[in-house]
Amino acid sequence: MTFKELNFFYHLCEKPQVTNLAKELNISQSAISLAIKSLEEKLNETLFDRIGKKLILNERGRYFKEQTYEHYLALKDAQTIFQKNKLAGTLKICASKTISNYIMPDIYYDFLTLHPEVSFEIDSFNSTRIINEVVEGNIDIGLIETNLSHSNIIKKHLCDDELIIVTSDEKYPKNKYVDTIDKKWILRESGSGTKEIFIDCLGAKALDLNIFMQLNSFEEIKKIVLDNTDTITAISRVVVNKELKEKELFEIKLINISFKREFSLIYNKAKTPNLLFLDFVTFIEHRISSNYKDMN
């Protein structure tokens, strides 16, 4: 049964003449008659007695009205809510570690402050898993830090990011280009966008790395590198801004190698973008484009 059929039914309960109701609603009599007939066929019940030009609610019709009218009113209220506030609902979002921890928190907060009827379900995984979640339709929006080309995914470029190599060893050549690094590498786990970009950029040199540990948390990696001068890592500049400024960590550059990557927003190609979805995507794009340069 449709909302239109129910709407005609409850109107006829109060005003049983089809002619008068058609004039009041500015529609044809046949449209009302066909809607009521369709409703009765779906219920396999006759709801009205046809007496002259009137449709008189019968005992089954009265019972149907008693059992359904409150639910009908609730549906009308829900319809009104969505008409008045298009920016209401829950978005499922998953962001990779760098984006989730160092870029998105303020964006989430500010959007929810502007739109209190909105809520987020937020997770943080590595980029490979996020891509899989988007393909399966388990999340609305993915925020990743790795290259991607997939026939079922739409990708929006948000900004470019720079990976840098850092150590806590003050004696190591700093801000000078070197060819090799004889230290213990502390890297992100397999599947991480950070690690994938780093290994790809190194090319054949990656075979010579002494990968000592692989972790899934930047904070864990930073702690180890800060506490152990014989360690080194590749990490987003955003993550270690504070430590660089306070000279707790020092940047090392490799000859003829730079580590660039892009942060992207992705969603399933089959998704229907509603107003809430589109507004939040635009909000993210605007905030990152205007603010990300300040994080570097």
Score class of each variant (00 low, 15 high):
T113F: 10
M213E: 13
I181H: 03
Q67T: 11
L87G: 05
L215W: 01
K42E: 10
P173E: 11
L34R: 15
D161Q: 12
E136K: 15
H286G: 11
E59I: 03
L278T: 12
I93W: 07
F48C: 04
K195M: 03
R62L: 15
D179L: 08
G193H: 06
F111W: 02
D49C: 05
Q29C: 09
D140C: 01
F250L: 00
I153Q: 01
I103N: 06
R188H: 04
L275Q: 03
E14D: 15
R261D: 11
I224S: 00
T68N: 05
L249A: 00
E136A: 14
E133A: 09
L143V: 10
V118A: 06
K184Q: 05
M295K: 13
E133P: 00
N44R: 09
N296E: 15
K183Q: 08
I235F: 00
E246F: 08
T80Y: 09
S119D: 12
L202I: 01
F250T: 06
E248A: 10
I165A: 02
D169Y: 03
G142I: 10
K4F: 10
N210M: 04
N256H: 07
F280H: 08
I139K: 03
N291E: 14
Q79S: 12
Y108R: 02
H115R: 02
N26L: 06
V134K: 05
Q29R: 06
V239M: 01
F198G: 02
L226Q: 05
Q79G: 15
E243D: 12
F9M: 00
T90I: 11
I164P: 00
F218N: 08
L202H: 01
N268K: 11
V166R: 10
P105R: 04
Q79R: 07
R62H: 13
N241S: 12
K23M: 02
I131H: 13
I197T: 13
L207F: 13
I154R: 07
D161H: 14
N210E: 05
K247N: 13
I27Y: 06
T98E: 02
A88K: 08
L39V: 00
S151P: 07
N175E: 09
K97Q: 15
D227K: 05
D227C: 08
I56D: 13
I36G: 01
E66Y: 09
S289W: 06
C201P: 05
E41Y: 05
C201V: 13
I257M: 00
I288N: 10
F259I: 02
I154C: 06
D279H: 14
E14F: 04
I154G: 05
A35I: 01
E248Y: 11
D49T: 11
A35G: 01
Y267C: 07
S290A: 15
I232Q: 03
K293W: 06
C13Q: 10
L12A: 03
S190L: 07
N175L: 15
Y177A: 09
Q79Y: 12
K54V: 14
I131T: 14
K54A: 10
N7R: 14
G193K: 04
G137M: 01
K195N: 12
S28I: 04
M295D: 04
S149N: 14
H71F: 12
N20G: 13
L25M: 07
N101Q: 08
H71N: 11
